[in-house]
Amino acid sequence: MREITYLEAIREAMSQEMRQNEDIFILGEDIGVYGGAFGVTRGMIEEFGPERVRNTPISESAIAGAAVGAALTGMRPIIELQFSDFITIAMDQIVNQAAKLRYMNGGKGKVPLVLRTPSGSGTGAAAQHSQSLEAWLVHIPGLRVIQPSNAYDAKGLLKAAMDDDNPVIFYEHKLLYKTKGDVPEESYSIPIGKADVKRKGKDVTIVATAMMVHKALEAAEELAKEGIDVEVVDPRTLVPLDEETIIQSVKKTGRLIVAHEAVKRGGFGGEIVSVIAESEAFDYLDAPIKRLGGLPVPIPYNPHLEKATVPQVADIIEAVKETVHF
């Protein structure tokens, strides 16, 4: 199969849908001739023109709100929010408006929009451009939250997000943009709410998201050399969460490690742990659950400090060994 990058997969998903559906358009800062801060929309304004690739002023509240209003009246906008940290400035429109309009209106109207935004650390962009704030959005009824970890998932999940009639927050990871993977040329959809077992194993389950999926897979390869057979589950969508796949995996392995880059305190890992604690899988646990997450500090600039802030492969290996040898 053809290999393309995560970034190209996202662009291809948008372009293919925009060719099919006139109601889809994209708006955001510097997405025109500049091609977006990370180059995701490069070439799109040339194909679709400035009406459908709408370069906006630096006005996150108006960008998000205009998308809400357009969605409510029959369009299917895609917002490109330059850095996921900037969701702070768009939050009213996403949380108080987009997520709640349908419910507040007693089921009338819908807000089919996709907010695409890069999150995560590892680029030296420091505290205001490196956060992973997905847990905030997960907390809001009315939103869907997606976090693809590879090019194949990114393309299929973005297609599903564009087809969905609800506001969808689509978290991309900056360090994944250049990663390559097998991606079919034709359009395809991955169901929202379906986890993927990225590696089958029988000794321990690691539930990991975004970049941590790759780190968990790397750790699993190392651990395999020592005879420890790791299963890696990628939820892919946080809302709705495929609880069943996680529960079945833990019932099989009897051990659970949760790994994400977001600050551990109040992070989504706590939700996954709770799902297990409240399920029949709890009786199958042979060791305490471990959570790996970011340290409770703003992401620092210095590369050594930055790296030390979020879980690394060695941390995962150590956690697995402690769990397995408990």
Binding site: D23, F25, E51, S61, A62, A64, G65, A66, A67, V68, G69, A70, A71, L72, T73, G74, M75, P77, D92, Q93, N96, Q97, L101, M104, N105, K108, G109
Partner: peptide
């Protein structure tokens, strides 16, 4: 919505960008 009232709003100023978006639909479609 049937009568074209996109809604009251509990957030002061919350409806203003929504109006802009609805106007964008009118223009684009």
């Amino acid at each position: 919505l049937e009568k074209g009232n996109l809604g009251a709003n509990g957030i002061v100023g919350g409806g203003i960008p929504i109006a802009v978006g609805a106007a964008l639909t009118s223009k684009m479609k």
